[in-house]
Every structure is written in C-alpha cells, then in structure tokens.
Design a protein around this nucleic acid. Structure first.
Lengths: 140, 140
DNA sequence: CGGAATCCCACGGGATACTG
DNA sequence: CAGTATCCCGTGGGATTCCG
C-alpha cells in the first residue's frame, strides 16, 4: 500500500509546472515531448519490443516476433525502424546467406529501459488491484 | 549523460526475468500486466489526462478538454470511463443546473502519476536527443 | 454543462505471398 | 532469414448534433 504524502504531491505539481505550465492553448504548442516523443516510444508494441531487448542483449527478427507474440511482420519492422531512428536500438546486418540481422539496445535505449521497467514493474505489482477495480466497476 | 553500468544491466535482466521469464509462447499466456493493464493506462490520451489531473487537483470535463487539446468528446469520455473503472480517477457529479462534474485522482491514481511523471520527465529531458537522432536518421 | 448518439471516413494493422 | 508489397478489413476516432 503506497501512501502519498502532501510533500510528494507538491513536488509532483512543481515538476508538472515545468512541463506544462507554459503552454498556450490558443496557439497549439510547437512540440510537446510527451505527445511527440513519449507517445512513440510508449506505444504498446514498442514497449514490449524494448523490454524484450532489455531481457536479451541481442535478438533477431524472428525471435523478437516470437517473444512479442501477436505482432505482425509489418508492425514489427515498422516499430523497429522508428525505434532505431529515435536512437533506442541498433540494427546490425551481416551479409551472410541467408542474411542475419541483429537488434540490440543502444546505451540510450538501455537507460530508457530502466525507466520503462520501473513503470512496468509498478503495473505488474498493481495489476491485481486494477483488475479488481475493473470487475467491481463492471458489476454496478 | 547517463552511463549504464554492468550492474544495472544485470539488475534489469533480473527484473525482466521475473516478469517475462515464465511465459510459454506455445500457449498464449492468460494475462500479461504489460499488455492488459499498462497499455490501457499508458495510452497516449490517457497519460495526458492523468498528468493534467496530477497538475490540477480537480478538473471538469471542458477544462480537461481544453488542456488535453485536440481530444474529441467521444474519446475523452471514453478514456475517463476506463480510467475510472481501473481506479485511477474519481468522478463526482453535482446535481445542479446545469450539472457539474468533477474529476480528480484517487490515491492510487496519484501514485501512478508519480511513476508516470518519472518517465515523462525523462522524455522531456531527452527529447532533444531523440529529435536529433530522428533528423540525422532522416538525412541518410 | 457534460456527455451520449450518430454518422462516416481514414488508416492502423492483420494475413498472406513474394523477393534479395 | 528478414523483411517488403499487396490487399483488405475493422475500428478508432473526428465532427456534429441532441438530450437531461
């Protein structure tokens, strides 16, 4: 059970002040990190990909597809491209026959995984609570 | 610049082991917290809603719609319902005319915001790096 | 004011087949 | 093996209207 102190709340507000305080809603802000950057990396499939690459230091396309079960070829290669472009992962192709391609986290991606994993762990620990809520809510 | 030590990596793997280690890919796992719970709360619109409710202790529908600019009525009320069902937020309706409805974080939601904010801050701090990567990647 | 309802379209994304 | 290309479908979600 996590109790939230008033002090924590105040600190939270302060942080959010820095992130959101300056936004002018008349003129849509140029660029919002949460919208533009975080939404990409925190997409449902991308998070799974990144987490699995945090688990195994290096993975090939089809392994990844197996672990991130349910993902299609199209979406997987799409997400991999974006994650590479944004600097989270690295792609190494070996010109053998048949070709071999290895994906791994960059240092940047590794530090992202640490953060993401904090959240994932919290979700993991609290999912029973959420599911209980859901059910209770459904019964009303 | 964040350097990732080998020790950190090892701890990361250990955590992921606990979360993912037991999964059997032949039979799709019953329920995965990251897929089922996290994906809901970490949806792009939901994160923005939750963060704004961390900023302002209580918000009404139209205020929320203003802050989470770009969101439609439909999606906003949809997300609010889900967030309420999952226990992150609380909805209070005052039977005045015209009716007034106030949304706020539950204690549970507040503790979620703390976690989410950690990630958002990291994104905020690192978005320049990501955007630089993106551009460089685009030029190749 | 806070939504629910309706309509409608774009496009995200699944399945399959094909290629370097 | 690692994707790309194609096709096709479902639905998420935007705009608008209406109701309590």
């Amino acid at each position: 059970m996590e109790t939230v102190t008033e002090n924590q709340k105040v600190r939270t507000v302060k942080k959010l002040e820095k992130m959101f305080g300056h936004i002018d809603f008349k003129n849509p802000p140029e660029l919002c990190p949460v919208r533009d950057v975080m939404s990409v990396a925190s997409d449902q499939w991308s998070t799974l990909i990144v987490l699995w690459l945090g688990y195994f230091p290096v993975l090939r396309f089809n392994k990844l597809k197996k672990y991130v079960y349910g993902i299609s070829n199209k979406v997987l290669s799409q997400r991999l491209k974006v994650l590479e472009a944004d600097g989270y992962i690295e792609r190494k192709a070996y010109p053998e026959v048949p070709i071999r391609v290895e994906y791994s986290l960059t240092d940047f991606g590794q530090s992202y995984v640490e953060k993401l994993l904090d959240l994932a762990e919290w979700m993991h620990d609290n999912s029973p609570k959420v599911l209980a809520n859901r059910e209770k809510y459904g019964l009303l």
